[in-house]
Design a protein around this nucleic acid. Structure first.
Lengths: 187, 187
DNA sequence: CGCGAAGTAAACCGATCGGTCTACTCGCCG
DNA sequence: CGGCGAGTAGACCGATCGGTTTACTTCGCG
């Protein structure tokens, strides 16, 4: 990726996330990246494609951030909780307006849009991750436990992003903890 | 409200929800309502105001729908669960793309937008409702229980809207049930 | 009867949208 | 030296956006 393209992707990531995809025009992205529109179109081809790469890049950065937390966790339980810990720590600088995937899904609508695959893939990956981690805690109830954890995770993201109440992600983490305790006792 | 205005609001409710607010122009809303743009602007003044009234109307219809479920529930526990039951039954025709407030929040961004108050108000009202109902189940833990229920509720709405897994609202209801059982035993 | 509210039909406005194009510059590499 | 990839500067395009305006119709009510 050329330096110009990288700056475009950085500006797009910031602007699309903070102001919304539809609300931000390509002229603004190019100007903010210190690049002409020609460069933007030479590298990305269309706004649609830029949106796809914005979402894929954001997802990739989140997964890398999460991986560090997962690696450091030693027990099955703490690996589940690591997802919530990572979300809480990610929230400060990167999550002020909630989950970028949820927001993009709300804006795009059309399932035929190429970004839809990225969005759906991210959520499916997260559910699969939580279910896999749940399997180490309570193998017989992995599927149900994974879904419950996903519910808390998504709820925490939304409540945090909309400011429904303070420390929503911390609250979600504590609920996840209670869920794990109950699951451990029941197999 | 004049018949024309009512048809505009109905068309706006359908189009804004299903395709997104930014993606739908006033010309389309007017055409779909069988009305000229002049009528639309005579009645609503601006698209911004139409968005505000769309959200307020949607919220009002949901609250009226929910009220029926709440009235029919006889015990404190079943009143909490009535919120989840209502959401599940509301989902079929009205929730195919998730919560309209969450989606609008994702699209609007700017907290100075007049629609922000409607959105924040709806979420604050829901949290207060759940907390109030939780108080009848476990008075000492009402605040925490209300927040946990809100987390499950929002998570269920998002998971349903994005199709993360099937019957997300049913799953959220069962988790809420477990939460209530635990809370009853602990006061 | 006559007035005013509600509406149609359609032209029109400036701004902005996503996207293209031409002409030119710079630096690296064979 | 020569060529090519990456970039700037900026004019330009058709379409659509939110919003306004003029002229006319329809209808219920005092």
């Amino acid at each position: 990726m050329t330096p110009g393209a990288r700056r475009v992707l950085e500006a797009a990531g910031r602007l699309f996330y903070e102001r919304g995809i539809h609300a931000v025009g390509v002229d603004l992205v190019a100007a903010e990246a210190g690049v002409t529109k020609k460069t933007l179109y030479d590298r990305f081809g269309s706004k649609e494609q830029l949106v796809v790469e914005y979402l894929a890049d954001r997802d990739e950065r989140w997964r890398a951030f999460l991986a560090g937390y997962l690696d450091r966790a030693r027990t099955p339980r703490s690996r589940v909780l690591a997802v919530f810990d990572a979300a809480r720590d990610w929230a400060g600088p990167h999550l002020s307006r909630g989950c970028g995937m949820i927001n993009a899904h709300a804006e795009i609508g059309d399932p035929a849009h190429p970004a839809y695959a990225v969005i759906a893939g991210q959520k499916a990956w997260t559910l699969a991750l939580l279910t896999g981690l749940a399997r180490e805690v309570a193998p017989r109830r992995a599927s149900g436990l994974g879904r419950s954890l996903a519910l808390l995770h998504e709820g925490g993201l939304v409540a945090h992003g909309m400011g429904i109440f303070p420390d929503a992600l911390g609250h979600a983490r504590r609920e996840a903890e209670a869920l794990l305790r109950a699951a451990e006792n029941e197999g």
